[in-house]
Design a protein around this nucleic acid. Structure first.
Lengths: 139, 139
DNA sequence: ATAAACTCTATTAACTTTATAGGAATTAGA
DNA sequence: TCTAATTCCTATAAAGTTAATAGAGTTTAT
């Protein structure tokens, strides 16, 4: 399961992509109201997204947020890693957050191979899914 | 990420499959020692696995556990669901633990489709992976 | 000045995970 | 029957994570 935080982050970026016209910034309060995300929680999420270079913020009365990258260039795997950490189902199988198993020998581990396969298939999808493609997608 | 509990459960079933000869039962203490799983924790896990009909237990001095099904018939998806609950990354996309999103309209949700795809690909692998196939697998 | 936005740190409440404790029930065998 | 060794069960604790909130500070346009 991804966290609510991560879901909120995706929604916020989608909202920005859906509503960005000209160069206007969008208030966190607008996103919070429209997407039913707790306002203060969303603020901290947007700050993180700014730190990770997904969005740009502007302070003051005419402040707000806008995307820092082309929605085509924001892929879901990167976003999820930034917000939630590892995507893999086992630490010993994570590409970006690898951690070894204390209690087993990875060379002969019978569990690892399946979860490597799951990881590969999952990443194949998430790496090729951008904020832009999520907007288009209507299966 | 799957929980440690789930990983221990998989290891325990693999151990039983790897070591069952004749009809002998295997002590939880043996599994705990060999697989470096906290003994008391493993006991509660094995009890759950018994309740879910994965293993059979026998009490008393010559007690222990053995598999209740053919290792070929124990698939990873069922096991993971029993121990950890939903496999899907979003409640609204789970086949066995569906829960609706309060804050969004699923009909027009831009997030859902990707995670349905991830779910499908993940289940394709987990459904076709059994305790037995994990033992064979040497890629 | 003021209003309204973002910024930041700290904290909290709830929940989940990962165990552990302590004993009860069961069984085989001396 | 007594003992030893196992599983069974309930409760609880300790640690970690998640989800959110509080409150004050900073910035900017008007």
């Amino acid at each position: 399961m991804i966290s609510k935080k991560c879901k909120y982050a995706i929604k916020a970026l989608l909202y920005l992509a859906d509503h960005q016209e000209d160069d206007r910034s969008i208030f966190s309060s607008e996103i919070a109201e429209q997407e039913l995300i707790p306002k203060k929680f969303l603020e901290t999420i947007l700050r993180e997204l700014r730190n990770f270079q997904f969005v740009q913020s502007k302070r003051g009365k005419t402040g707000g947020y806008k995307l820092l990258k082309d929605p085509k260039e924001i892929n879901l795997a990167d976003l999820m890693r930034a917000v939630d950490g590892p995507i893999a189902m086992l630490p010993c199988v994570s590409l970006n957050y690898y951690a070894n198993c204390e209690e087993c020998d990875e060379k002969i581990c019978q569990i690892k191979p399946v979860f490597e396969e799951v990881r590969d298939q999952t990443l194949k999808i998430l790496n090729s899914t951008s904020i832009d493609s999520m907007r288009q997608e209507r299966l």
